Computed example of a mutant assay.
Amino acid sequence: MSKWLALAQQQIDSATRVPFAPIEPIATESSLPGAVPIVPFVPIAPETRPIGTNGAIGTKPEDDTSERQAIAEIEGGVTLVFSLAFAAFQIGCSAGCSVDLWQRAIDDAGRFLDQHGHAAAALGWMAADLFAADGLAWALKGAAVVNLTATAATLLDGRVFRRSDEGS
């Protein structure tokens, strides 16, 4: 599992906290100096809005993307050519795509960027070459890239992925 999928799984695992909300004070201990109200905390209904990458409920999607982009660049060393698209790719599963397939594509993209991201950028690869619906992230399906040129990626299983003319 790549560090990207591990990070995503860690965020999912940490998002199951039960939220609490304060209610009105039920008493005040006034016999002591600096009296403090006694306020019980009660659980509230689970939040249904999206959970942000920092674990905050209801984080705006643009905040999620910016945060993931920063993580990719600072901690992952992902080049600017790919960091924003990679962040956006992780935010939500495409319509009609299974979550398992999408997570596999995220993992494959992270592994590719770890191993070949800077070389791909230097060879002129663009974000669309990796993250478009017909991009390399979707085509890898668990296979490693063993050779990368300006026009194609050769995969360990013998398949060759060719960049589209529009992405070049």
Rank of each mutant, 00 (worst) to 15 (best):
V99F: 03
T16C: 15
D157V: 03
T149P: 02
S30R: 12
I106L: 10
A70S: 09
L155C: 01
A137D: 07
G135Y: 03
A121M: 01
T53L: 11
R68T: 00
L156K: 02
S2N: 11
T16I: 12
E24I: 14
R111N: 02
A105I: 03
A45M: 07
G135I: 04
T65C: 14
A128T: 12
D63M: 06
V42K: 06
G158M: 02
T154F: 03
Q11E: 14
T149E: 03
A72V: 03
W125F: 05
S164A: 05
N147G: 15
W4D: 13
D13P: 02
T48L: 13
Q103A: 08
Q9P: 03
L7G: 00
A139Y: 15
W125H: 04
K3G: 12
M126F: 15
P37N: 01
V36L: 15
T16H: 15
T16V: 12
L136I: 08
S14A: 11
G76K: 01
L140R: 04
C97R: 09
V36W: 09
D129T: 14
E166W: 11
A21F: 15
I71D: 06
G167C: 09
E24W: 08
W125N: 04
A143I: 05
G58F: 05
M126P: 09
Q10M: 15
G58H: 05
A87M: 00
E67F: 08
P25W: 07
T65W: 09
I44D: 14
D165N: 12
V42R: 07
A15K: 01
P40K: 05
S30N: 15
T59V: 13
A121Q: 01
D114T: 11
G77L: 06
M1P: 14
G92H: 13
A128Q: 11
M126V: 14
L7R: 01
W138G: 14
I57V: 11
G52Q: 00
C97P: 03
A8D: 10
F82P: 00
L32G: 04
E24R: 08
A27R: 06
E62Q: 12
V146L: 03
G55R: 06
H118C: 13
A109V: 01
F20W: 13
E73Q: 13
T28P: 06
P46A: 01
R17M: 15
G110H: 00
D13G: 05
T79E: 14
G124Y: 01
F89M: 01
I23G: 15
T151M: 12
A45L: 09
D64H: 00
A8Y: 07
V160T: 10
V160I: 12
S30I: 11
F89Y: 04
D100F: 06
Q10N: 13
E73D: 08
V78Q: 02
S168G: 11
A150C: 07
T28G: 08
E75C: 04
I38D: 14
G34H: 08
R49K: 06
V36I: 12
W138D: 11
D157P: 04
G135C: 04
G77C: 06
C93V: 09
W4A: 15
T48K: 14
E75H: 05
V160N: 08
D13A: 10
V18E: 09
P40F: 07
G110K: 00
Q11F: 10
